[in-house]
Design a protein around this nucleic acid. Structure first.
Length: 197
DNA sequence: CCCTGATTCGC
DNA sequence: GCGAATCAGG
């Protein structure tokens, strides 16, 4: 396959949309993600945030390369700009708190029931929870022995029941859980921002 | 192991 | 110009 005009166009479009190189490659067909990335680079749109001048940070990673034998690449890049870029990207910010009305705080604790403070189970992103529910429907339902290093170890159900299994979906990075469960597993600490004043 | 993009360099 | 191989990281 070659980079015809419209293929390049599609490439640009998708890249601009933030699609991953592999997705683009898959869409185009006949090319690997490497090809896509290579093309992206040659097109000069490697960085997705072109706009305002300052950009890419130093990337000294490829410095020590075994392959690169004789490489007179003595050109230290004079980059040093700080990155004050506001980046007003419309990201989907999941609201953490939802209903608890701060101004109105009138907890009525009936006598005999002295345990208002929920230990933990509370204000996690509703979205995250929803996601977990979805995920659990398509979970692999692995048993303890079936768990591996890269299966989500999130327990579902009651261990005392047969209705118990582990998520088992592929974890992403070195995390013990899948994406969805990581979301609820690691509580972003401080759901409660005690307003000091 | 899955994935991501970045870079190099023979072609 | 192209892209596989490789690197670096999540």
């Amino acid at each position: 396959m070659s980079w015809t005009d419209d293929r390049v166009e599609l490439l640009k479009k998708m890249w601009g949309e933030g699609q991953s190189a592999s997705q683009i490659a898959k869409e185009l067909g006949g090319v690997t993600r490497n090809a896509v990335i290579g093309k992206v680079h040659r097109l000069g749109l490697s960085n997705r945030s072109p706009g305002g001048g300052a950009k890419a940070e130093a990337k000294p990673k490829a410095a020590a390369k075994p392959k690169a034998a004789a490489k007179p690449k003595a050109a230290p890049k004079p980059k040093a700009e700080a990155k004050p870029a506001p980046k007003p990207e419309p990201k989907t910010e999941p609201a953490v708190a939802a209903k608890p009305a701060q101004p109105l705080r009138k907890a009525i604790i009936p006598a005999g029931q002295p345990l208002p403070p929920q230990p933990s189970a509370n204000e996690i992103s509703p979205e995250a929870l929803a996601k977990v529910n979805e995920v659990e429907k398509s979970a692999k339902k692995l048993t303890l022995m079936e768990l591996t290093e890269r299966t989500c170890k999130w327990p579902v159900g009651d261990p005392a029941t047969e209705d118990f299994w582990f998520c088992g979906l592929p974890v992403q990075a070195g995390k013990p859980y899948c994406e969805a469960h990581v979301g609820v597993a690691f509580q972003p600490m401080s759901a409660r921002r005690d307003r000091k004043r």
